[in-house]
Design a protein around this nucleic acid. Structure first.
Lengths: 219, 219
DNA sequence: CAAGCTATCAAGTGTTCTATTGAATAGCGA
DNA sequence: TCGCTATTCAATAGAACACTTGATAGCTTG
């Protein structure tokens, strides 16, 4: 068959995208980019790798069609290439949780003690009723790049200092980058210590956005 | 941070699944398994690789949680581990088409001249009206493992011999493994040569099944 | 229980991938 | 234009991977 070769070429082409997901370093970059577009060295710093290395990985992700690349003056911004690309990353991540015990184990190890959660639907209801405060505990730039409607930004670092901003009687819901981000876990633990009733949203901003970014109906 | 290490472990665990998609050989195996469960050496033969090699890849896919493994007497059957795993493969494939020109180019090269297509919705309507014949041109075992309701099985190899089974006046719709499977393309070309009006369904059985395997309403 | 088939294992080899280093380039502002 | 910063390129060493070959283990059948 002459076509055996052509078929092989086809699978090789598809595997280019597969390879993009095969390195932990690249996945970490994707995870950060799911929040907001960023420059090479922000990404390098946030993921704890050298700039040159991050640059190489980002180029690989770009070549695989997962990221767009735009020059902004002296820096280069990378961003997810579309909702389908973002969705693919989230699906891969979710599937790995569902099928690989090791992922769950590693997640527990990283996230520490589990805290109470609240689902998307429930949160929307409670927001509509107005009896919870929704707090985005990610760094401020990520909040600025997009957030759940009705949330207020209190980065985890500033949480203790700004506890007084939270009405004492009300329950607090914290959210962050996603189910594997430690910020919301930590925020809830600290809020509990400070005597607040608190839960974390079971996933984060990218999942919310991809679900169509539902907004609470105002009463 | 002590947790930097834990975070790294988490991404490494997720990357196990990513790595599964990083080899063209493995993707070819997945593509075959999307049709029906199979034994190691059927897969090896169908994908043109040695049994030992196929076995290794299948074990890797199994370790990544994408496949289940069941022993059946002297042979071992591998199958997709669930709808989410299958869906992930299809999403990856589709995303690669959407974002990588090279995939489209390779597909055209492999599939040959494009033929007229019909979408899922349109096909359902036509089936309900009863004015098309739907033909599954995959090998018979794959038809047996699952097919679109209302289709009849005529493997591509037998098409010429069995042309008389097709009512002369009616349009024929052929489908096969998916958008990148050459069978339906080839079938339509041959049917056209034989004087039949024919189109191919724009995707194949796995996509149909994953879409909930809609069935035509009988009049 | 021996023969035969299927699948896996183990070891070896050539290739590809990853991270590092240091140098080169591109844009910006003085 | 010069110097500064951000990014990329190029070369390299080490690790991981893919495919081959030959041996081994599990089941079935005679």
């Amino acid at each position: 068959m002459a076509s055996a070769q052509a078929k092989q070429a086809l699978f090789e082409a598809i595997a280019v995208m597969g390879k993009a997901f095969s390195s932990p370093r690249r996945l970490e970059l994707l995870d950060l980019l799911a929040q907001a577009p960023r420059s090479v060295d922000e990404l390098a710093r946030a993921s704890g790798q050298s700039t040159a290395n991050a640059s190489q990985h980002l180029q690989a992700l770009h070549a695989a069609g997962l990221l767009t690349r735009t020059r902004n003056g002296t820096r280069v911004l990378y961003a997810f290439a579309g909702e389908d690309a973002l969705g693919l990353w989230l699906s891969l991540r979710d599937a790995s949780v569902a099928h690989l015990g090791e992922v769950e184990r590693a997640a527990r190890e990283y996230l520490g003690e589990e805290v109470e959660t609240i689902g998307r639907e429930d949160l929307l209801e409670r927001l509509a009723k107005g009896d919870v405060v929704l707090v985005d505990v990610r760094p401020e730039e990520e909040f600025a790049a997009g957030h759940i409607e009705g949330a207020r930004s209190i980065p985890l670092e500033e949480l203790e200092r700004r506890l007084s901003e939270l009405p004492p009687g009300q329950e607090v819901v914290a959210y962050c980058r996603g189910p594997f981000c430690a910020y919301a876990h930590e925020a809830v633990r600290r809020l509990n210590e400070a005597g607040h009733a608190a839960r974390r949203l079971e996933d984060g901003w990218p999942e919310w956005r991809l679900a169509g970014a539902p907004a609470p109906k105002h009463a």
